[in-house]
Design a protein around this nucleic acid. Structure first.
Lengths: 258, 258
DNA sequence: TACACTACTGCAGAAACGTGCAATAACAGG
DNA sequence: CCTGTTATTGCACGTTTCTGCAGTAGTGTA
């Protein structure tokens, strides 16, 4: 019995019976309870099951959404999100910008992450309800176009917090115009958030590389790194590097996690 | 029987029978009353049941997992939501509490409503993205169970705004205990919001009438009205009216009901 | 008040858990 | 073919959790 297919069997048994006793499974499969427990631990960390004393129970129905959500995001966004999540230390305080890539980050973030997430996006906050992490919501005028709180009140609220990391979403990453977005107020908000974190990483899925929008957020060299999916020897990528951007490349051929 | 699923069974039995006797459950499950009592104690602490001498009673039905609550939008909630929306004047500034009934209000609100909606619930804010109304988000520590921002920062932010109307969600509306909810911080937040609006209406779908939770929000007579679905000649309803509650009945509330 | 019943506390045994370690097997590279 | 590395597994140890019991305190009723 391969370890991978054994986990599959455990999940199937969970769906079938609605519960799973570690000792029973150990007897049935002819291996020690330790191995079963290790599997259950990983399934729990992956959010696919809930471990309880004596065995495990199926994860909440919400997990189904979780699976679909992760599947929906384009590969590029998923890879960028995964690379970004990998930068988060346990217990860290992290600011998440709004946008689809940050939503993909929430999907990629382990449910058991015990840290603080600060966000001005109600969508991101709502997605984090299923996680254990502490969530701090920054209020303010809601900008419908990008679904984030902006404006003076939001900037003021943001100025009271500080964090280890900020994951910045932009609409354009360009060698000459730098990091840009489509709204002036939003750009100001992003700058404020960047100033509140020790390190700022840009989430730059492929469609953003080489693009530019109307309002400048920051120069390329004022962020800690730009997480991108693009090839290292791509001309545009090299232009960015030459312009002072510190690029963080995703592991495109990364094997599946569990 | 896993200890974790045993608690689930107890909750199910509570929902089914409306009561639970420790001794009976001990006999039925073949374990000591001590274990049952220990479970009930934890369920009580978690706010999922109310312990009484000899066993336990269900907590206010409104107290359940947020996920399960969102799944069902019973007719009662829809009627209450529709009645609430009818109270909103064009161009008004409205504070919306968190919860499923306020979400139903968003669904019932015309997309073309041109006013301002203030909320401390990221879920409500996200639902309003498709509307034309201006949205002001109140930030703060996110309280996972009911998906709203609470705490000192949220109260402070709330104190800077003022509105025409506040639609208050509670988990219990009871003649003697008044308006109650399951968390102390949340109760404080609700009081603050109520103080910022000229008029406060309570959204009381049927399962909340006659129920009580641990923390008091406001007395019955300190709100402008309680929007309810229950029958006018229902004994519980009359008790509420006698206790000073100004009841606003929905269109579908009939005089004879179970 | 007296009585029966229920609840809480502390305790001890049993079962389950987590961690570190060692043995084994599969695999890559020289 | 040999060697170093990695993944997997079982075992031993100490720790935590669950459970029932005994004793004591509290509650409801007559």
């Amino acid at each position: 019995m391969l370890p991978a297919s054994r986990k599959e069997l455990l999940l199937q048994r969970l769906r079938q019976d609605g519960r799973l006793v570690a000792k029973e499974m150990a007897d049935e499969l002819g291996l020690s309870e330790d191995s079963i427990r290790r599997d259950l631990r990983e399934l729990d960390e992956a959010g696919l099951a809930v471990r309880v004393y004596g065995g495990a129970l199926p994860a909440s129905p919400a997990v189904a959404d979780y699976a679909t959500r992760t599947a929906v995001a384009p590969d590029s966004k998923r890879r960028v999100a995964a690379a970004a999540v990998a930068l988060i230390e346990p217990g860290a305080t992290v600011i998440l910008d709004g946008g689809t890539t940050t939503l993909a980050m929430v999907a990629a973030l382990p449910r058991t992450f015990r840290g603080t997430i600060i966000t001005h996006s109600p969508t991101v906050a709502a997605a984090l309800l299923e996680h254990e992490a502490e969530v701090l919501l920054i209020g303010g005028q809601l900008f419908k176009h990008s679904a984030v709180a902006c404006g003076a009140a939001a900037v003021e609220a943001a100025n009271r917090i500080s964090a280890d990391l900020f994951f910045l979403g932009v609409t354009g990453v360009h060698a000459t115009t730098g990091l840009t977005t489509g709204d002036a107020d939003e750009a100001a908000m992003k700058r404020t958030l960047a100033s509140r974190a020790a390190e700022t990483y840009v989430l730059a899925s492929e469609e953003k590389i080489g693009a530019a929008s109307r309002y400048s957020v920051l120069p390329l060299d004022e962020v800690t790194g730009i997480i991108t999916d693009s090839a290292k020897n791509d001309p545009t990528t090299r232009e960015l590097a030459a312009a002072g951007a510190r690029l963080v490349h995703t592991a495109q051929a990364r094997s599946s996690k569990s």
